[in-house]
């Protein structure tokens, strides 16, 4: 399969502390890559490099290259806003903007120049349907997004990312703190989305990674320990540390 993102010798340090060291990996197009590893292993940092949200942190040092469709996204002078439009992100905590449901979804597209009301409405409906939230909110699009439940809010956030019509979706523990039913809905959503989107999923939940992803990267203390197809990693892991982690012996 074609590679959407290629990471070459990527190192990242923050305040002279190594967070990632010489990571090499690849994200295949139209698939789900799971990134797993214990806390502080650099998962979130890696994710935030993919959309350059790491720029917000002061005193960082990045080495290596990250290619999105062959273009190095770490080069200076890159239009970060355009990159972030192509690479959407969903955070671990659902953060609805203090606006209505409709306005949450229309926020991004509108600021990127879509003014036509009809077009916005179509976009909102399509995104909400993709995120499997449409049926629950179709009659109250003008109500505040803050009134939704936690699980609904997280699906709203996914829909908000989808409304940007991105190519890649980054998810940082999207089901953290959600009940099993909401978690299931989000996992189903991810399955249906991978047909047309490239997805990178960071998760602390080993079983979620096993259930939903096609490929897995296992990070430990900023090092990539193992990278391969989910099936392989969960049946015949090459590294003992991977084996220990997925069988719950540490982490």
């Amino acid at each position: 399969m074609a590679a959407k993102i290629v990471v070459k010798d990527l190192s990242f340090s923050y305040n002279h502390q190594r967070v990632l060291s010489a990571v090499n990996l690849m994200v295949e197009a139209d698939s789900i890559l799971g990134i797993m590893g214990p806390a502080k292993s650099g998962k979130t940092t890696l994710l935030r490099i993919f959309n350059r949200l790491c720029d917000l942190i002061p005193h960082v040092r990045i080495e290596g290259e990250v290619f999105l469709d062959g273009e190095n996204i770490l080069r200076p002078g890159l239009n970060v806003d355009r990159l972030r439009k192509r690479v959407g992100m969903v955070f671990d905590k659902p953060v609805p903007l203090p606006r209505s449901i409709f306005e949450n979804l229309a926020y991004g597209p509108r600021l990127h120049g879509i003014k036509d009301k009809k077009r916005l409405e179509e976009l909102v409906e399509r995104s909400l349907r993709l995120a499997q939230l449409w049926d629950e909110v179709k009659d109250r699009l003008n109500e505040s997004a803050m009134k939704l439940s936690g699980g609904q809010q997280q699906r709203l956030c996914i829909a908000r990312t989808l409304a940007m019509e991105p190519e890649v979706i980054l998810l940082d523990e999207p089901t953290y703190g959600l009940d099993p039913i909401s978690t299931l809905k989000i996992e189903q959503t991810l399955q249906s989305l991978k047909e047309s989107y490239t997805i990178v999923l960071v998760s602390n939940n080993t079983w979620q990674v096993a259930r939903t992803t096609d490929n897995v990267a296992f990070l430990l203390m900023g090092e990539l320990i193992e990278y391969g197809s989910t099936h392989e990693i969960f049946t015949v892991p090459k590294d003992k540390r991977t084996d220990d982690y997925i069988s719950g012996r540490f982490g």
Partner: peptide
Amino acid sequence: VPYELREVSFSLGVTRWQTVTKVVLPS
């Protein structure tokens, strides 16, 4: 104003100034 709101806005490819006028100042 919660920092997360800015992160969300940036992650949607919205510029800093737009984030200030559309999200931060209203809140």
